[in-house]
Simulated scan of single mutants.
Amino acid sequence: MVAGETSGDLLAGLLLDGFRARWPDLRAGGIGGTQMMRRGFEAWWPSEKLAVRGYVEVLWHYREIVGIRTQLRKKLLADRADVFIGVDAPDFNLDLEADLKAAGIKTVHFVSPSVWAWRADRVEKIRRSVDHVLCIFPFEPDLLAQHGIAATYVGHPLAGVIPIRPDQAAARRLLGLQAEDLVLALLPGSRRSEIDYLADRFFQAAAHVIRAHPAIKIIVPAVPALRAQIELAARSAGMLGQVQIVSGQSHTVLAACDVTLIASGTATLEAALYKRPMVIAYNMNWLSWQIMRRKKLQPWVGLPNILCRDFVVPELLQDAATPQALADSVLQWLDAKISAPEKIRALEQRFTTLHEELQRDTAKIATDAIQNILAG
């Protein structure tokens, strides 16, 4: 298995629970993180090595990433695994999967590349590289079938982990917050490049929010490996003493908050499953952005908006993601909490419906699909 970042590590860890229930003597190794290792996974390299987003940013790490893939390919071809599962990270995994499939090793890709949102040209590469795709969104198998790619909808694992009705009071107690506190969560990303491009903007936006709501509590869940980088950004923005930075605990923070300012990515879906109003933001290297925007197929970038087919929450991307604009969008949600609670309730209902659509026994369905592939 290869999972290339924090969200992939979480998804792969949930899959491993199902695998071990079916195959108690399972041996699993490759590239992974703490969630996978907690399930007995042998991480030959940590998933953080692949946690790079953006075309230019990848170039800076290209030699190391290619070296890892070359070594991994040799090891997997020598060991002849029964099945290889690439968890997201399509730029790394699809080329590797193509080589393994050509050598007769069964290949599965978990989390369909978003050909319906970006890079439709990738469809041919998927068909060449994988025996089966495990899809987390219900519309994806039919779309892939049109291109001759076998796929199974397994639901989104997080929809089974996150409760339909999150316990905000319990989450606040865990974080030392009071029930009556107004709480803003800042989630500037789980990659170093995201922290570089977003953290300073987020902290400056939070400073604007504090001026409007001096008593607001601001919580920042940090990937442990990136905590020092986030603290440095907070200090540079003059905000270190005004925010509470916690290691990990992103789900607890999302459950506890009233609103979140959040980097585009899997975390936005987690926020939707916690039924939280959010402002989605993203900023990256200018050249990477120019390349990405030309491959965009839909008006939305944030997963909650893509799945709801509407701008149910604001998206502020690249030059639009100024501290003042981010703060203004956050303040609109905070004002709605006080003066237009029906707007918050409507969003919560929309996200509850989405949650129910994504809820399946993902680990079992995925394990059944892989069993069929192995038997085929």
Rank of each mutant, 00 (worst) to 15 (best):
M1I: 02
M1V: 15
T6I: 09
L11I: 13
G13Q: 03
G13P: 10
L16V: 05
G18Y: 04
R20C: 05
R20E: 03
P24I: 05
L26M: 10
A28L: 11
G29Q: 14
G30V: 12
G32L: 09
Q35N: 07
F41E: 11
P46K: 04
R53G: 00
E57M: 11
V58I: 15
H61I: 12
R80A: 09
A81N: 11
D82E: 14
G86A: 15
V87T: 15
A89L: 11
P90E: 13
D91R: 01
L94R: 07
L94C: 06
A103K: 01
G104T: 12
W118I: 02
V133C: 07
F137Y: 10
A145D: 09
Q146F: 13
G148S: 08
I149W: 14
A150D: 15
V154K: 03
G155R: 06
P157R: 02
G160A: 11
V161L: 15
I162S: 09
I164R: 15
R165F: 14
G176Q: 04
A179L: 14
E180R: 11
A185N: 02
P188W: 10
A199D: 09
D200L: 15
D200K: 12
Q204V: 09
H213V: 04
H213E: 09
I216T: 03
K217F: 10
A237W: 09
M239C: 06
V243F: 07
L261E: 02
E270M: 02
A271W: 13
N283D: 01
W289V: 01
R293Y: 13
V301C: 05
G302N: 06
L303R: 00
P304W: 05
P304H: 01
P314L: 00
L316A: 07
T322K: 14
T322R: 03
D335Q: 13
D335Y: 07
A340V: 02
I344G: 01
A346W: 02
Q349N: 13
L354C: 04
K364P: 08
A366Q: 04
D368V: 05
L374A: 06
